[in-house]
């Protein structure tokens, strides 16, 4: 099952490192990353494969949001279907 990870907030060092380590610890594989900086605003979108993750996506999402709070960023993990539904016919 694939999910979309989005990370937004004020740019600082180590964001990608933190998020990647978090995903690796959950056995989630990163398939694609796009990242931009606008002014001092950091925005990253990742497509990930969570099929080997043993936790359900809802608890991964909750843990990711908490990890985001620790580093002062908004981190969301959402099932890809919500984006498929809204943007693909």
């Amino acid at each position: 099952m694939k999910a979309v990870v989005t990370v937004t907030g004020t740019d600082r060092k180590g964001i990608i490192a933190q998020v990647s380590s978090f995903l690796c610890a959950k056995n989630i594989n990163i398939l694609d990353i796009s990242q931009t900086i606008l002014g001092d605003q950091f925005a990253m979108i990742m497509m990930v494969d969570a099929s080997e993750c043993t936790e359900d996506l809802a608890s991964v999402a909750a843990a990711a949001a908490e990890m985001g709070r620790d580093i002062g960023m908004s981190v969301r993990v959402q099932h890809e279907d919500i984006f498929n539904a809204m943007h693909r016919v």
Binding site: V4, L31, D32, T36, A43, I45, M47, F83, M86
Partner: peptide, 12 residues
């Protein structure tokens, strides 16, 4: 992969 506009649109 979704483009960033689509992802950000949904989140906004």
């Amino acid at each position: 992969m979704f483009n960033s506009t689509e992802v950000i649109e949904t989140i906004d």
